[in-house]
Simulated scan of single mutants.
Amino acid sequence: MPDAFAPARLGPVTLPNRIIKSATFEGVTPDALVTDALIDFHRAPARGGVGMTTVAYLAVSPEGRTHRRQIWLRPEAVPGLRRLTDAVHAEGVAVAAQIGHAGPVANAASNRAAALAPATALSPLGFRMTRAATKADLDRVVEAHANAARLAVAAGFDAVEIHCGHNYLVSAFLSPRLNHRDDDHGGPLANRARLALAVTRAVRDAVGDRIAITAKLNMDDGVRGGLRVEESLQVAAWLERDGTVDALELTAGSSLLNPMYLFTGDAPVREFAAAFPPPLRWGLRLTGHRFLQHYPFREAYLLDHARRFRRELTLPLILLGGITRRDTIDTAMAEGFAFVAMARALLREPDLPRRLATTPGTPSLCTHCNKCMPTIYNRTHCVLTE
């Protein structure tokens, strides 16, 4: 069994350990550029013992943001991102850039641009119609991913994580529920996976082995008619065949239709409602439980699905989902996972990895209340530490 707290290779990069701070939107970029608060956000887990921290979410184009306050990768953003990577590297830790296109998860009203999707539909985010992506749109999005990866290299990142989950654009094309196209990007899985395979190939061709490349892939959308494990396994096998990614981070759920399937634990409906102005606030209070469903928290709640991927693939896998204990990390290592990813627990205790390394029985203080989730609109943090 590999030691989770010893150095490990991720593609061409050596990480100081196998603990990754997964992408958690930070909510501290009001001008869509790096701030001191964003740097501090990532310096904290770097000092706290992770092997790599992931900056989220860096859109590949303006309309690919979920909200206009998010950074989109462009030359103007590179100097600030270089300050961030330098600060993380000074702590002896690697840093990844999560890149992607939000697709139907984008707030068109905020972005002042139509949200791209496989097909036209009313989006609950901004209450506007999405626009069915044309072939020219998809070609542009593929090239935008390649360009974003080049800029990530220029900014000093050690890795890029391509967002292929949560019904963002690539994930939406994979979803039978959201993708009703009758062209060569719709119908059979091989067609629905074209965008995912084209994006990952474009990124690999753009950066080669200069940095590590990972992809965040949904195992299960968690919605009726969505992507399920069997089809996701096939997509993962195609990614392994193509050699375009160095590892897969396995995730689940839909930011558009069922976000709590990813998070599990308490559903903070009232707190989410309070983050929005009326009348949306009132609507969320009345109907929010339909959108924010309740799934009881359990440690490593995505492990059962992830085991199927581990059995069928040789590609390095990153286990995500409710990892807060040393024995869980050791189980992941024993079962062949290359890395584990943590997020919410690090909001309350950025130094949890360091303490788990030195005192294995250390309990996490995270209560899985999920009240950190609505804080993404101003400054992502654990409300219990206020």
Score class of each variant (00 low, 15 high):
S254D: 03
R281I: 01
Q234D: 09
A247C: 07
D266I: 07
G321S: 12
T251G: 04
P277M: 02
R224N: 10
L320S: 14
T331L: 15
I329T: 06
G322I: 13
R228K: 14
T244A: 03
V235P: 05
E231K: 01
R281F: 00
R290V: 11
G283I: 08
T287L: 14
R285T: 02
L239R: 05
P268R: 06
A237P: 00
M260V: 10
E249K: 02
G265P: 09
A300C: 09
L284H: 02
L319M: 06
L280S: 01
R285D: 06
A236E: 06
R285I: 01
R308I: 13
L257C: 04
G288M: 03
T314D: 14
G226L: 04
F309D: 13
P296E: 14
R270K: 03
L250C: 05
L233C: 03
P296V: 06
G253S: 11
T331W: 09
G225D: 10
Q234M: 02
R290N: 02
L284I: 15
L303E: 12
M333D: 11
G283T: 07
L303K: 11
R228A: 12
M333S: 10
E312R: 13
E240W: 08
Y295A: 13
G226V: 06
G288Y: 02
F309Q: 11
N258Y: 05
V235K: 03
L292W: 03
R310H: 07
P316D: 11
L256E: 13
G322A: 10
H289Y: 02
Y295R: 11
D304A: 15
F272T: 07
T324D: 12
G225C: 06
A300N: 13
P279F: 07
R298G: 08
D246Y: 03
R290C: 00
P268L: 05
I318M: 09
A252D: 02
T264D: 09
A237F: 00
V245N: 04
Y261Q: 12
L320T: 15
R270Y: 00
I323M: 09
F276S: 05
N258M: 07
F263E: 13
M260A: 06
A275H: 00
A274T: 00
T314I: 02
G226Q: 07
Y301S: 03
E231C: 04
D246N: 14
N258Q: 15
I329G: 07
R311K: 12
F291P: 03
R298L: 01
R228P: 00
V229W: 04
R224A: 15
L257H: 12
